[in-house]
Design a protein around this nucleic acid. Structure first.
Lengths: 130, 130, 130, 130
DNA sequence: GTGGTCTAGACCACG
DNA sequence: GTGGTCTAGACCACA
């Protein structure tokens, strides 16, 4: 399993898992339609409470990233379509407002910042998900 | 005062204030060396407890954004030098890893993403802080 | 528990705790990776408010002495690396400027002063922390 | 006047003045018997409230560093004898306990620490006060 | 159970 | 007047 959890991080464990599942799809580590481990399996692998995993899977399902079948468990949504909603754009813009402001004041040029974006996007286009 | 607090937000109040102070410096609303309201004044203006503001100011001081002048209160650090540390770059890259992944999967092209960065940076360079 | 608080001291309680934790690491009373009591537990042990302990732990975390594990609480940073920064050296030198000046004028010879340093350092090297 | 006040420092202004007077005696900038500026003069020079200077002078007098004559104002005590009391030694040792502990953990060797002491003491013996 | 946030109100040191 | 410290008690998110 590709999950790496930092227990000392400020980011909640459930959020870390969500992030890595989403990133896993983007970089192609997780294929659409691919099965995810069962709640108890994943919890045991990482060494956390299975309620935490449960929470992750439910949120991922609600946001459309995965589908949950009673029998076959959880899989990456084969018809992934999470959508570029206006609400999402706004929340992203809000995040970038503060992120770029701090980056600018810390002396990171626009070109350097964009280079980070470039690097990430390039790793998606090649093999990536959608 | 330029602060806009969303009390119903999931982002803690003190974090919102921090964000807006930093962004205020970047866009030039707050000049280096400019005085900030006293903890009790700002708390009263926003309608929150002064301990919350105190926490903000202490964190901003600790990170180098402001200096706390004995007696005259808090001001934007006139010698602002928060630094493009390796640690910061890494945390930024971590943040962008997940942010771009989700953006990509939601159908936001690299060009659209960069346009958001552009827009923000342009508002800094003109009048902005450092 | 090894903490001894002097409530009548002019040194703030939270500062006393910080000092004793750091010294505890140096003399080996606290091992790297060792768990510290929870904020509420320690507060109860000492007979103070948990907010005071919380403040201590947050400052110790911020300065790199401890890590706050999600859920399992606070432990001495197993990868302790607080660093001999230039900034630190300068603040130490400033402190020693006034300390030695007063010691000199009070008739404490250089040898006597160094003997105090010796004594302390010797108690670290034997069993001490890093 | 040789005083340098940092208004953004954590150290109270009155303490900074006290420190610099004592250090001034040690390094020979201030001679025993030398007159200090009047309360109002010094306050005006530094740009602070004269109550603050008053407080400094009174504390310096009480600790034996200066004498105050009704007419001639304040002068460095010509018969300086502040004394190596047991109480002082203990307070110094307490200070060095935490100071050396942090220095040790930050990777400052005993030799480096002692070198700082050396450097300071050497600047006293040549021309210094007592 | 853990820490994190926020409120409320007190007292103090400093200038 | 300023910020700093401490107490007290509430509610929340996380695991």
């Amino acid at each position: 399993m590709f999950l790496q959890i930092q227990f000392e991080s400020e980011i909640p464990i459930y959020q870390q898992i969500k992030n890595q599942v989403i990133r896993g799809i983007a970089i192609g580590e997780l294929q659409l339609g691919e099965d995810l481990p069962s709640v108890r399996q994943l919890a045991s692998d990482i060494g956390i409470n299975f309620h935490t995993v449960n929470k992750v899977y439910n949120q991922l399902k609600q946001e459309g990233w995965v589908v949950i079948h009673r029998k076959s468990g959880v899989m990456i949504n084969p018809d992934l379509n999470v959508g570029k909603t206006q609400e999402y754009i706004e929340s992203l813009d809000d995040l970038l407002k503060i992120t770029t402001a701090e980056a600018f004041l810390r002396g990171l040029s626009k070109e350097e910042f964009i280079a980070l974006i470039d690097k990430n996007y390039d790793s998606y286009n090649s093999k990536g998900g959608k």
